[in-house]
Design a binder for these strands. Structure first.
Lengths: 120, 120
DNA sequence: CAGGATCCGAAATGATACTG
DNA sequence: CAGTATCATTTCGGATCCTG
């Protein structure tokens, strides 16, 4: 593996723990299509609860991946968007996505085979 | 973002939930350096418990990322290695690692700034 | 050596109800 | 609309003890 030092491994873990939760990447990918309001995001991301969307957005904002813009009106309007840092994360994550799409069948088969020869 | 279809997003999540746990990628990265026995892995990966190493290896084996070879001797010998599928995962994960290394300071600063203006 | 079994605490997630 | 607060549940991870 070219250009990969051992020192990078803890860093990988660090990012994955930030990005590896259930919703963060779905939010980032969704915001990759453009700025969006809270309930808009909620509708687009299937199955996310209000609580989890809030928490996920706070986490992403804290890490500087997402910006939050409040327009004090009635009713209030809050827009979320990717920062430059957030944008820069999209490519490496997409690579992982490509891998997932390319190998999902292989993984599914391996899983089925494993379950068969263990449980059986 | 070129070549990224909406349909890929759930797939990203799927991989991340496989790979995003605390130990899986450390194991994969370690096995990237070559085949290894159980306790060897345990020594190399700082802080992992026996239970978690076992569980992580089982998971990776189930998904076809790692192979397990038992040599029936006394004491028993079990070797773990990456499969071709496991090898193929190293590159996209390394990309994420590169991103992590490149941006860890930026993230740390964003985090500190956020905590300051919230808690303060 | 390479685990399996069991117990426990912590953290993530979800459902629901309420609010400026 | 965009949250906060609370509660229940599930999952994760570590510690410990036991075994072929």
């Amino acid at each position: 593996m070219p250009g990969h030092s051992p020192a990078a491994c803890p860093a990988v873990t660090e990012v994955l723990s930030r990005v590896g939760d259930k919703w963060s990447m779905q939010v980032v990918m969704q915001l990759g299509y453009g700025s969006m309001r809270f309930n808009q995001l909620r509708r687009e991301i299937d199955g996310i609860s209000q609580r989890m969307l809030t928490r996920t957005l706070r986490g992403l904002e804290r890490d500087g991946l997402v910006s939050r813009t409040v327009t004090p009106s009635v009713p209030p309007r809050v827009d979320y968007a990717l920062t430059a840092l957030g944008e820069s994360l999209r490519e490496p994550v997409s690579r992982l996505g490509d891998w997932a799409v390319a190998n999902r069948d292989t993984v599914a088969e391996a899983r089925a085979a494993y379950d068969l020869r263990e449980e059986g």
